[in-house]
Design a protein around this nucleic acid. Sequence first.
DNA 1: TCTGGGGTCCTAGGACCC
DNA 2: TCTGGGGTCCTAGGACCC
Length: 415
Amino acid sequence: MPAFALVDCNNFFVSCERAFRPELEGRPVVVLSNNDGCVISRSEEAKALGVGMAAPFFEIRALVAEHGIVSLSANHELYVDMSRRVSAVLSRHAPVVENYSVDESFLTFPDDTLLEERARALRAEVRRWTGLPVAVGLAPTKALAKLGSDKAKKLGGVLSLLDPVLREQLLDETPVTHIWGIAKRSALRLAPYGVRTAGDFTRMRDAQIQSALGIGGLKLAHELRGISCLTLADAPAARQSVTVSRSFGKPVYSLDALQSALGTFAARAAERARRHGLRAGELGVHFGWREDDRPVMDGESVRLSPTNDSPTLIRAAKALADKLFVEGRAYKKAGIVLGGLEAADTAQSEFFDDGSVEKSARLSKTVDRLNAALGAGALRYGGEKSSTAWGSRCESRSPCWTTRWEDLKAVRAAV
DNA sequence: TCTGGGGTCCTAGGACCC
DNA sequence: TCTGGGGTCCTAGGACCC
């Protein structure tokens, strides 16, 4: 029976910050989203003080002041780089690693002997090379490995659910909403069947599960019963979309500011598409504002002949903005989505091509290279403007210790 | 009085994840 | 006054076809 391991970094963003600021160890720490809007990572101490996941920052301001909670603005450049370092360690231990998210990886070991010992060794090595604490769950399926790693965080870092008796016991004491893939809505649909725990869920009849949650729910139930349905994705799946969106630091009323924001987002998205070797056949623009005290979103998209050219995408985004703009509306957020993605090398090129397409591609490549060398945003297109009109708040961002020379940490040896 | 059936493709929206 | 951003997959319903 092949076993899956899930390696999960504890409180990932907070742990990344602590790796470079050991003085934060033992103190309550939170990391905040864009605009310092809400909490996206909490240390154990912060959780113990009652700070909820995704808590709006303004709601916990009093708690922060009272207990001296350290609040930091998110530094994704640092987190992505730390994530890469963790994967590098994992790859030395396992032939196939699936990077499921920035802080979680599934893997299988080459054979099934001494699994717990291997998991412990891997955990120790991640700690040694990156400074990050991780938990490891071992189980015959991915869904169970996930459950195992959640539980492992409280139980010494490694938990094996390969034993069916232990497994059933854990399922029976786990609320069904703590299962990967079941949240509030699905739990509500299961409630009429008397389902409260994960164990209850696994004992439902297949037909009932399927009528309540569809095919996905049924697969999940099998996984929890120990029958593997989800395989390890050794290569990342082809990307379906590229999104760049932001909430504004303050409401935006002018078309000009919206267009400069969208121009910037389009340039970022184009850059990301090029990095992945993709062209977009569709570009969407969306705006968010409030009506009757409720958030509203609206948008529209256009088809394009496949491209990843920044100026083209910037123009398309601005044209849509112009079309959607309503005078007097207090815009709170905006974003662009690239869809209809296809590999850039197989994409059909424009029939009437006078050579300008290739010229533009060379220009894009040069801009990307310079930005990579000099720091993001060093070089910009005319259409993207940095603007105080829509910029976001981030009061306390840590330096990019691992990815920018100027942020390199100074270390002095005591003599 | 009667109102096919089956297939595909596309889209919007729901639900979930980290 | 202040509530993130970036994704995926599934489903239901409409349009269209034979």
